[in-house]
Design a protein around this nucleic acid. Structure first.
Lengths: 232, 232
DNA sequence: AAATATAATGACCAAATCGTCACTGTTTTC
DNA sequence: GAAAACAGTGACGATTTGGTCATTATATTT
């Protein structure tokens, strides 16, 4: 348990040494992007293989073929790097959920509910298909302690869960869900099931076609909704 | 990523310095048990709070109020300590699943299947109720990389999953399950849902009574089975 | 092309961590 | 009670790690 150094809350990633120089299409700009990309790519692989906490800065720069000083030019430390890896994905996910929530508020009747969940599923599938490495890391780390460099991952996990609860709550208000029932249970069941199936799929444990997996997911979620419906 | 030292595969925990001395009811015996207990207790708390990989031997001995040399008298290192924490629970789980598998082989018809799953659920509930700390650690670590001191946890996770698959397979052969369907999907859904609900419950996120949670779990598992039943 | 601004580098330091061991304390045996 | 076996201790050396910085290399501006 290496004691974390005192850090000053700071701006976004990648970090600006003082201020980014003017020209944007220039060689500097390209080099910078390349350095950051190299670091991120190497880090993601290492994180997936050994876990965020176990990977050292030396491991990362060594694999990335970059000097240690360069790393600290772009990132304050591992936590900021992790945040940089997750930020874009997190944004897209939040966006998809927000859209879904709007849809949900206009939904009328059970069939509309199903349609709304369906289009959320499509959106999410697109996001994760484009970010398999990050997804894998997420599944691996999101239940760990909310400390150190894992913080951004756990924060995302909590955020998504919260939004999923909210979504179910809206569905209950606008749909036909019972109120004597803790709607979070069904939500948690869905999240757990989805994550477990995805993990198995990514690990190559399943020989099932992804369409079949999708079918199973739909079944789980619909069952979850149905259970919250007045004696369907 | 500290390189692991070369270790010789060795016998069980707790470790014998040369050979344990004769008398069993004596003071020595009591002291040894107390040392081991102190270490395990402190370690479990720290592991839950910060994650197995982040906790150092110094943290553990400091919290346990024990000298570092004493730690190494009883354990070869962190991995062996983790194994010592999980071994008893793992044994009881395997036992419960084995019993269930025998039951399952004698089950006839859907109602019997339900009964068999029910009694497995009771057995498992008893085990985890008596080992909440270990359960929490399991949920937190079981999806991490299979390296270092996390190994025993991941190994248990894989083992349990394998057995759960086997159980479903037996149910399919003896019950009425479709064969054109990857029976592992339903199993994974159940595992994921159970684990997620337990994690939320342990984290105190749920104000639901544990009986209601149990009801939700039963629903999930039965739905999982039903889905594998010829067009119920 | 010279001057300036920005970026990359890796040797270096301090702190942390592991695992050992010579020594002291305690229990058992004779 | 003396001797022998076992257990507990924490200082120590070796290694690893995070983070810095003077120096060198590269890009941009003049």
């Amino acid at each position: 348990m290496r004691k974390p150094p005192i850090t000053i809350e700071d701006s976004k990633v990648p970090r600006l040494p003082s201020e980014r120089p003017g020209p944007e299409g220039g060689k500097r700009d390209a080099n910078r992007r390349q350095q950051v990309a190299r670091i991120c790519e190497a880090a993601l692989e290492l994180f997936c293989a050994a876990g965020v906490e176990s990977v050292t800065i030396d491991d990362i720069v060594s694999k990335a073929g970059v000097a240690k000083g360069s790393f600290y030019r772009y990132f304050q430390g591992k936590e900021e790097l992790v945040d940089a890896l997750f930020s874009p994905v997190a944004d897209r996910m939040r966006e998809a959920l927000a859209t879904c929530e709007l849809d949900m508020k206009q939904a009328r009747g059970p069939s509309e509910l199903t349609r709304v969940y369906g289009s959320l599923g499509l959106a999410v599938a697109g996001i994760i298909a484009a970010n398999l490495g990050v997804l894998r890391l997420y599944l691996q780390e999101s239940r760990g302690p909310d400390l150190g460099s894992r913080k951004p991952i756990v924060a995302l996990s909590r955020d998504l869960e919260e939004t999923a609860f909210e979504l179910t709550r809206v569905a209950r208000e606008h749909g036909l869900l019972r109120t004597d029932y803790d709607y979070r249970l069904g939500t948690l069941v869905s999240i757990g099931a989805i994550e477990r199936l995805l993990a198995a799929y990514l690990a190559g444990e399943l020989f099932t076609e992804s369409t079949d997996i999708a079918g199973e997911l739909i079944r789980v979620i619909l069952d979850g909704i149905r259970a919250a419906t007045p004696q369907a």
